[in-house]
Design a protein around this nucleic acid. Sequence first.
DNA 1: TTAATAATTGCACAAATGTGTCTAAAAAGG
DNA 2: CCTTTTTAGACACATTTGTGCAATTATTAA
Lengths: 315, 315
Amino acid sequence: MDDNRRHLLAKVAYLYYIQGRTQSQIATELNIYRTTISRMLQQARQQHIVTIQIEDFNPQLFNLEEKLKQRFNLKNAIIVPSDRVANNQQKNAALSKAAALYLKQIIKPHDTVGFAWGLVLAGMVGQLQHPTQTDATFVPLVGGPSPSNSQYHVNGIVYDAARQFGGHSLFVDAAAVQESKLIRDGIIGAKYFYEIKRRWQQLDIAFVGIGGPLSSKSSRWRDLLTDQDRQLLKEREAIGDCCCTFFDRHGKILNGDLSDRTIAIPLPHLQRVPNTVGVARSLTKVPSITATLKMGLLNTLITDEETAKQIMDAQ
Amino acid sequence: MDDNRRHLLAKVAYLYYIQGRTQSQIATELNIYRTTISRMLQQARQQHIVTIQIEDFNPQLFNLEEKLKQRFNLKNAIIVPSDRVANNQQKNAALSKAAALYLKQIIKPHDTVGFAWGLVLAGMVGQLQHPTQTDATFVPLVGGPSPSNSQYHVNGIVYDAARQFGGHSLFVDAAAVQESKLIRDGIIGAKYFYEIKRRWQQLDIAFVGIGGPLSSKSSRWRDLLTDQDRQLLKEREAIGDCCCTFFDRHGKILNGDLSDRTIAIPLPHLQRVPNTVGVARSLTKVPSITATLKMGLLNTLITDEETAKQIMDAQ
DNA sequence: TTAATAATTGCACAAATGTGTCTAAAAAGG
DNA sequence: CCTTTTTAGACACATTTGTGCAATTATTAA
């Protein structure tokens, strides 16, 4: 590569990229054939005589998204950059905002949108300045919390979402975990529950959180579990839950007495939903998020950088 | 400009410029209309989210070339970067090389190429590794030096050029300045000079140097001038010469006894040559180069950065 | 909230760019 | 110096990109 050639390539690149002339113009001016100019530009890029930089964009984050998508066969992955100095609350808020933005992006006028429990899901409400006005239906995917936790009711989430997006919402008037299979079956067999179940069959979008290990204290609904439940889950090596349904690290759903007493959309159901969006972050949740992904329940994951890195590194 | 929008633009720019995907692909992937992608890229460039840098290229030099071209109605201008630590010899060598490269670039198989005096012109010879093989004719545009300076004869330049480019050359067997108009007329009226004059009429390319003030010592041919010549030129405020013809700072050609005794192509002749290339540098020559440009004799100038800057600043 | 203002979509068409192939010319190497 | 290997020219054609415009949809401000 001659020095004059480098200079010529640089000049052509300058005229094209900086001055914005067309290749034809440059060709005429320099008495070089147009197609040659085209090839010269290729070469100039190859040899890094032309350098294109993009601000406000982290290619590593993008690559991480791509890898996640590929590894777990996802339709989409959204990774929020991790701010090293932020506390957990701020990190969760950032995730909530990203989730809200994504919902706004994908929602269509007459969609049916399901929500499960989740601190981050609850945080989504109120994050949007000008939500798209729709006529969508918002439906809980699980039962509610214990009476002492009523302000965090999943019904509250769908109600607020409906208000924001101009649609309407359905309620579940029962706690997520009942005392016996008999009662549970009674509730979900009752007439008023038909509409919920019907909606579960025709979800367009489902937003679900992912719960971490049992030892974690942050759950809003697990006070419904009995000591015996906890004991059993521990024995069967539960590492987390999604829609109030527990599974182990291999992604095996832990059916049994507890699941028989639980009011929630059956997890395999989620696979048929066009947009199943999991929203979760934090290092303690890495195993449960990974297991969920392995189960193939989700086709979109919204998480943060540090969590995503751990998920990929754990492979 | 929203933060999310910036990020979106950055992502689109990344996919397009770095990953090399087409706008259609990006549109499909992000569910955005293709033309919107096109407009997003425009915006990303405008807002400097995308930055394109070009190495080995000095935009200032380029702008200087453009300004020179525009100011003096030139077809071309070539400016060699000035190396602050180079001495005059090195600077002249760099200019010679650029001139040689340019000749190689524009010469065509059967061209007639004229050369005048000039240290830089003389330096052109031997600068090319693989000169284009032509069948061109090389012809002197002026007479030779005094006998004491015979190794710098203009005939030597054309002879060497012809050897390099595979063509042939014509000679002038007379000094540039004769003792009287009578002798001069005799020489240029002689039969053997017909061919030269004929060639002067059909030049395709002319390379000419530009001489600086009389006080300057670097000239190779001015020892032919008499004391009286010098006195007269001083009175008439000569600031330089081109092809052994002097002019003042306004570009007025100083006709008279001296010019009547000079064997050289008449300067106005140069205007009809398709490529008239002036090659000169140094700060002392700025006034004479400027005057030459104002006369409109040249359509191409090859000089260096420091000289070019002075020429433009002097305006 | 509504009205005004701005931005995006969707489309048709024009312009610009890229690529394969062949020929001609130029560098490189012996 | 001649031969081999690279590079550029020239062209046809396919692909990609840009632009004006009308209709729609967001966003802002009152």
